[in-house]
């Protein structure tokens, strides 16, 4: 029992958090003014935003280097490792709830708001008085005020993307198994393949967006179908981007010989994150594209 509890590492003072706080402040203040200037004119806030991003990137590199050094010099106990694992799991849970808000919006719009505008339930007069010609059909290709768009089909690019991302979850799992067996060669190979699959996914999604904007008239502003489509796939794409960066950093750490059979929290965390992003995509594919 005592060995489980000895030497919990409490780091001494650190300058990274306050740097991160200043970075976040610049991002929030810059972004807040930037979107306002985008709409009403003016300039300059974009630079504050960029400065904030630069500070945050610098902070992340420094903070993580600090943590990696501590980990490599053996300061962390298995109890510390559990703290990190639990922290990461709860962080992923918070991300799940973030996506839940947008899935909630999608379900509400589709199951309640749009049918009610079409007169369902006890809303016959809503339909009659507001937009009598409106037809409640999902995907909502014509909004009540007449904005027209086209719905994205599930075949083609989205299906290919689903296959890419599902495969990448398996390849990452193979990489993990290789790490646990101490097979560094296979680890590098499978991790590299995973990163390539992730980047291809991003490339194809960019192409899908271009196609939507230029040929289908499907934009962020094309009614609640376009809103939910772009916010859900957009935030998911952002998470794939972050996950890919995470995996690329892990790849370089693997090349440097980091991680051992029983000490590889960072790898575990990156892998959890990737699987989480994959599950989100699966829900997206079903609820945004197929159904």
């Amino acid at each position: 029992m005592t060995s489980k509890h000895q030497n919990y590492y409490v780091p001494s003072q650190s300058g990274w958090p306050i740097m991160g706080a200043i970075g976040l402040f610049l991002i929030a203040y810059g972004a807040g003014n930037f979107v306002h200037q985008m709409k009403s004119g003016g300039s300059g806030a974009g630079y504050i935003l960029l400065a904030g991003i630069a500070v945050i990137l610098f902070m992340l590199v420094g903070w993580f280097r600090n943590v990696i050094d501590e980990s490599m010099s053996g300061l962390y106990s298995s109890q510390m490792d559990r703290s990190f694992r639990q922290g990461m799991s709860w962080f992923i849970f918070s991300e799940v709830m973030f996506f839940a808000a947008f899935f909630g919006a999608l379900f509400y719009a589709r199951m309640v708001a749009v049918p009610w505008l079409g007169g369902a339930s006890n809303n016959a007069m809503t339909h009659e008085v507001l937009w009598p010609t409106f037809e409640a059909i999902w995907p909502l290709e014509t909004t009540p005020d007449g904005t027209k768009t086209q719905a994205m089909g599930w075949y083609g690019l989205p299906l290919i993307n689903t296959i890419l991302l599902l495969t990448s979850s398996f390849t990452l799992h193979f990489a993990h198994l290789a790490l646990e067996k101490g097979n560094r060669g296979a680890l590098k190979l499978w991790l590299g393949v995973t990163i390539l699959l992730g980047l291809s996914f991003l490339g194809l999604q960019a192409e899908e967006y271009i196609h939507a904007y230029t040929e289908m008239g499907l934009t962020l502003a094309s009614g609640v179908y376009g809103n939910t489509f772009f916010l859900l796939t957009g935030f998911h794409g952002l998470h794939v981007t972050l996950g890919s960066i995470f995996l690329i950093v892990l790849f370089f750490r693997v090349l440097k010989g980091h991680f051992s059979i029983d000490n590889h929290f960072a790898f575990q965390a990156g892998s959890w994150y990737w699987h989480f992003v994959d599950v989100v995509w699966l829900c997206l594919f079903v609820f945004v594209y197929v159904l």
């Binding site: 979107v35 306002h36 985008m38 709409k39 918070s94 991300e95 799940v96 709830m97 973030f98 839940a100 808000a101 947008f102 909630g104 919006a105 719009a109 708001a113 749009v114 505008l117 507001l130 909502l140 909004t143 009540p144 005020d145 904005t147 934009t219 962020l220 502003a221 009614g223 609640v224 179908y225 376009g226 809103n227 939910t228 916010l231």
Partner: peptide, 27 residues
């Protein structure tokens, strides 16, 4: 995180032309 999602939708409704909370766009 749900609060974060809510304010994000307010932001896009006000500045980016979405209509989550606007019946004219199906919200």
């Amino acid at each position: 995180p749900v609060l974060a999602g809510t304010v994000t939708m307010v932001l896009t409704d006000k500045y980016f032309g979405t209509s989550f909370f606007d019946a004219a766009g199906g919200g």
